[in-house]
Computed example of a mutant assay.
Amino acid sequence: MFKKCIVPLFCLFLSLAAAAQEADVASPQTLLIDVPTAAVLDKYQVSFLTRAYADGSVMESLDFGVIPQVNIGMSLAVYELVGNSDHIKVLTPDFQAKWKVYDGNLYLPAIAIGYDGRRYGYNRHTKKYLDDRKGGYLALTREIFVPGLDASAGVNLSDFDRHDVYFFMGMSLRVQEWGALLAEWDNINSIRDSRLNLGARVNITPALALSGAVRRIGRGDENERILQLRYVTNF
């Protein structure tokens, strides 16, 4: 049953991308690797983000700029899609939303609040995820020190039942027009549970970017390499 669902679901994402027109300018970077920034898509923009990660899993995220300063989206992951596994599983869809409440100025950072339900590292034996969802969050972003160096930081509440508060921070250094270097420290509550992620993004066109990253650096067998392809269009 799951295998029969995969083709029409991914065809839906691809058909939406084909129907839209390529964006004319480089889109705002709403996400580093896992850390959200305060940036949002412009009105009538749509972002298609494909992530290939551990265990041959693939996640497609779709985000819309529905009204000024507000984005909504959904994501769908398929476990062990890549390879010859017989245990392909379509995971529960998640959603995300963001509202940029302040644009920032010369002295103060931009501010956004949002919700991100995406989770990674599914284990088919325990039926649990290695990473909790970001959940509700507050993100701050500002250019610091030199042009092209953006810093983001914030706080998130992953599980509203546990009331555990986590922190995150990240930096993006634009390298001329070809891309950016990415670094982030995520899920900060205890050192053991926090994640250090490093990566780079290459802008193939103003609307299409390819990213590679290593997640959970220093966590032994939990280290993970990912690839992401992001395409931004107007609708």
Rank of each mutant, 00 (worst) to 15 (best):
residue 70 V to W: 15
residue 73 G to F: 06
residue 73 G to I: 05
residue 74 M to L: 14
residue 74 M to H: 08
residue 75 S to E: 09
residue 75 S to H: 11
residue 76 L to H: 09
residue 76 L to D: 03
residue 79 Y to F: 15
residue 79 Y to G: 02
residue 82 V to M: 13
residue 82 V to K: 05
residue 83 G to W: 08
residue 84 N to K: 12
residue 84 N to W: 09
residue 85 S to L: 04
residue 86 D to T: 12
residue 87 H to Y: 13
residue 88 I to H: 09
residue 88 I to K: 15
residue 89 K to V: 02
residue 89 K to D: 06
residue 90 V to A: 09
residue 92 T to M: 09
residue 93 P to Y: 08
residue 94 D to F: 09
residue 96 Q to W: 08
residue 96 Q to T: 13
residue 97 A to E: 02
residue 98 K to N: 02
residue 98 K to D: 01
residue 100 K to A: 05
residue 101 V to E: 00
residue 103 D to P: 01
residue 103 D to I: 00
residue 104 G to W: 00
residue 105 N to I: 03
residue 107 Y to V: 10
residue 107 Y to E: 08
residue 107 Y to P: 05
residue 108 L to C: 00
residue 108 L to R: 07
residue 109 P to N: 02
residue 111 I to Q: 00
residue 113 I to Y: 02
residue 115 Y to H: 06
residue 115 Y to M: 00
residue 116 D to T: 05
residue 116 D to A: 08
residue 117 G to D: 04
residue 118 R to S: 10
residue 119 R to F: 04
residue 119 R to C: 06
residue 119 R to P: 07
residue 120 Y to Q: 03
residue 125 H to V: 11
residue 127 K to R: 15
residue 128 K to L: 11
residue 128 K to N: 13
residue 129 Y to N: 10
residue 132 D to E: 14
residue 132 D to S: 14
residue 134 K to Q: 11
residue 135 G to R: 10
residue 135 G to Y: 13
residue 136 G to S: 05
residue 138 L to N: 03
residue 138 L to M: 09
residue 139 A to T: 04
residue 141 T to L: 04
residue 146 V to G: 01
residue 146 V to P: 02
residue 146 V to T: 14
residue 147 P to M: 00
residue 147 P to L: 00
residue 149 L to C: 00
residue 151 A to R: 00
residue 152 S to Q: 07
residue 153 A to L: 12
residue 153 A to R: 01
residue 153 A to D: 03
residue 158 S to L: 01
residue 161 D to Y: 11
residue 163 H to L: 12
residue 165 V to R: 09
residue 166 Y to M: 06
residue 167 F to I: 02
residue 167 F to M: 10
residue 168 F to G: 10
residue 169 M to C: 14
residue 173 L to M: 10
residue 173 L to K: 14
residue 174 R to G: 12
residue 174 R to Q: 13
residue 175 V to C: 08
residue 176 Q to M: 12
residue 177 E to T: 13
residue 177 E to V: 05
residue 179 G to E: 06
residue 179 G to M: 07
residue 181 L to P: 04
residue 184 E to D: 03
residue 185 W to L: 13
residue 185 W to F: 14
residue 185 W to P: 11
residue 186 D to M: 00
residue 189 N to G: 15
residue 189 N to L: 07
residue 191 I to E: 07
residue 192 R to K: 14
residue 194 S to C: 06
residue 196 L to C: 08
residue 197 N to L: 09
residue 198 L to I: 13
residue 200 A to H: 03
residue 201 R to C: 07
residue 202 V to S: 07
residue 204 I to C: 05
residue 204 I to A: 06
residue 205 T to S: 10
residue 205 T to P: 13
residue 207 A to H: 15
residue 208 L to I: 10
residue 209 A to N: 12
residue 209 A to D: 08
residue 209 A to Y: 02
residue 209 A to P: 07
residue 211 S to G: 04
residue 211 S to Y: 06
residue 212 G to K: 06
